[in-house]
Design a protein around this nucleic acid. Structure first.
Length: 525
RNA sequence: GGCCCCUUCGUCUAGUUAGGCCUAGGACAUCGGAUUUUCAUUCCGGUAACAGGGGUUCAAAUCCCCUAGGGGUCACCA
């Protein structure tokens, strides 16, 4: 059997991180079996600007490197992939159901049906359809139709039976049809509703496996019934757990951002956004960009491999020890029977840990390309395509080493990019290690002329500074931290000598001079 | 409320289908220690879980029953 999976987003203007995980599982299952992955756009609800609504979704797929075999921009023999363009399929199926008596026109006013529903709820009973319209004769129906009485089409649920599916994740699940209302499958204008369009398309597109979030489990018996009524073989089902908010069991939602900011585990991601997004001209506090959306991860400088590894490990595991998966390895190893049953909270700490790993696996050139947009957008580099820009960035990245967890972290090395003193300085550390240490100031003052003569190369500087220590019977801690603060404004950071080399003689001397002047000024008061 | 699903360290999970290899393993986080001029890394080590109660069995995280808790869904949305 050819495996064909699909992901069917409705164009909402953003890609949800939980939806992305569902898409990934579909994609992996298809690729694992050399099958086909279809992207179908569920836009039966007449939409606004399609490029605005669909663009970010396609962008998320492209960013992560998940390609689709059939879908927007690459329609295949089963297209079109937009449900809004598939009306003829639904019309034909609807007519068949009406003709065979498996669906009926319901002329009961919506308000009346709603009242019955509420009454059932009040009496704590399951609600089933009244089927009053089923009593109408052919003539009466024709009359209503001619009079233009608004109506819907409902599937006639066979109440005397059960629907059982064997779900790849949840095993056997059974529903009693006697407890189900007849679902509306088409509106008054004949336009299809979700469950109907989905069943028609899944069959027409020969989807073999429907892999979707658990919240769709309750839609499944309806879709099974529609498939059966249409004489189609239903696809195989796999209801994967939804992605929960960090540390919880609640479905992660775009509407709960304020709450998430206060979540101790989630807050770590928000802090990253706050630290980085403002510097590249994006509003970190806006709801339009948050860690619930895939775009957020790209904007703060995650690597696709990091996000992918984080996603695949939420709700799925291979065994008791494998944690790292490249996309290729995921394809090789992914199977539905290893999907977990209970909701999995997004785990920011592990996501960051995967990210740390995968960013170091990237070739230098890719890391440079990843960092440059941040430097450009924050104004630290004017022309990111210039060779010098790439060179400098590469040097800073090499120096930063594993301190660069996200591409956006490059912005925390501002002092290495600016020529003047336009960088944040740790005043507290400066006071503690320089202002309050007259001996240190004296030593650094003595060191200055030596630096003016020095060759600015890490090894030479190391030799020079260490012999300076020896000559003055000093320990490293007596002047190295102070020197670092004077030239970078920071109390901690990468190797001091390499930092000095990268900064270059001119910047080191001028920054040291002005720091010492500041110290003398403070001492003179 | 009806229907359906879920419940192992703080978190993500292995182990449940075929009961014993589980005095419950790993990873992340955390805490200690070593290395390092600082920070980060790296390396060692520690704390930490079978929701509760009944059964069945020589033996239960694993099978059965009950209870509790959490969640999803109940649209002429998708």
């Amino acid at each position: 059997m050819t495996v064909r999976t699909r992901f069917a987003p409705s164009p909402t203007g953003y890609m949800h991180i939980g939806g992305m995980r569902t898409a990934l599982f579909n994609w992996l299952w298809a690729r694992h079996h050399n099958g086909t992955f279809v992207l179908r756009i569920d836009d039966t609800d007449q939409q606004r600007n399609m490029s605005e609504a669909l663009g970010p979704i396609l962008a998320a797929f492209r960013w992560l490197g998940l390609d689709w075999d059939e879908g927007p921009e690459c329609e295949g023999e089963f297209g079109p992939s937009f449900q809004s363009q598939r009306r003829s399929f639904y019309d034909a199926a609807l007519q068949r159901l009406l003709d065979s008596g498996q669906a009926y026109r319901d002329f009961e006013p919506a308000a009346e049906t709603q009242a019955q529903r509420e009454a059932a709820e009040r009496s704590q009973q399951p609600f089933v359809s009244s089927r009053a319209s089923l009593q109408l004769s052919q003539d009466q129906i024709a009359e209503q139709l001619a009079a233009g009485t608004p109506h819907v089409v409902r599937l006639l649920v066979p109440r005397d039976r059960h629907v059982t599916i064997t779900d790849h994740v949840r095993g056997e699940v059974t529903w009693d049809c006697g407890l189900m209302p007849d679902p509306v499958i088409a509106r008054n204008d004949g336009s299809p509703l979700y469950n109907f369009a989905t069943a028609v398309d899944d069959a027409a597109m020969q989807i073999s496996h429907v892999i979707r979030a658990e919240e769709h489990l309750s839609n499944t018996p309806i879709q099974v019934l529609i498939h059966e009524a249409l004489g189609q073989t239903p696809p195989q089902w796999a209801h994967i757990p939804y992605v929960a908010a960090p540390g919880g069991r609640e479905k992660i939602s775009k509407r709960k951002i304020d709450k998430y900011r206060k979540n101790p585990q989630f807050s770590r991601l928000f802090e990253i956004g706050d630290r980085i997004l403002g510097q590249i001209g994006l509003d970190a506090t806006a709801d339009a960009l948050s860690p619930v959306m895939v775009a957020w991860y790209e904007k703060v400088g995650f690597t696709p491999a990091g996000v992918l590894n984080g996603l695949v490990r939420t709700g799925w595991s291979l065994d008791d020890h494998t944690e790292l998966f490249s996309l290729t390895e995921m394809i090789e190893q992914f199977t539905l029977d290893r999907v977990i049953r209970s909701p999995a909270g997004l785990d920011p700490d592990r996501l960051l840990s995967f990210q740390s790993h995968w960013i170091t696996q990237l070739p230098e050139d890719d890391r440079v390309s990843g960092c440059l947009p941040f430097l450009h957008q924050s104004g630290l580099i004017e022309d990111p395509s210039a060779a010098e820009a790439r060179q400098l960035t590469a040097a800073v990245i090499a120096l930063a080493g594993d301190r660069l967890q996200l591409f956006g972290d490059i912005l925390s090395f501002r002092e290495l990019f600016v020529s003047d003193d336009d960088y944040p300085a740790d005043e507290q550390a400066f006071e503690k290690r320089v202002l309050k240490k007259p001996d240190t100031v004296a030593h650094l003052t003595a060191l200055l002329p030596q630096l003016q003569q020095a060759a600015f190369e890490a090894e030479a500087l190391s030799a020079l500074l260490n012999s300076f220590l020896e000559q003055n019977s000093l320990r490293p801690g007596d002047i190295f931290p102070a020197l670092r603060i004077c030239v970078t404004g920071k109390a901690a950071g990468p190797d001091l000598f390499q930092t000095l080399e990268l900064l270059g003689q001119q910047r080191v001397i001028s920054r040291l001079e002005s720091a010492l002047a500041k110290a003398r000024e403070s001492a003179g008061e």
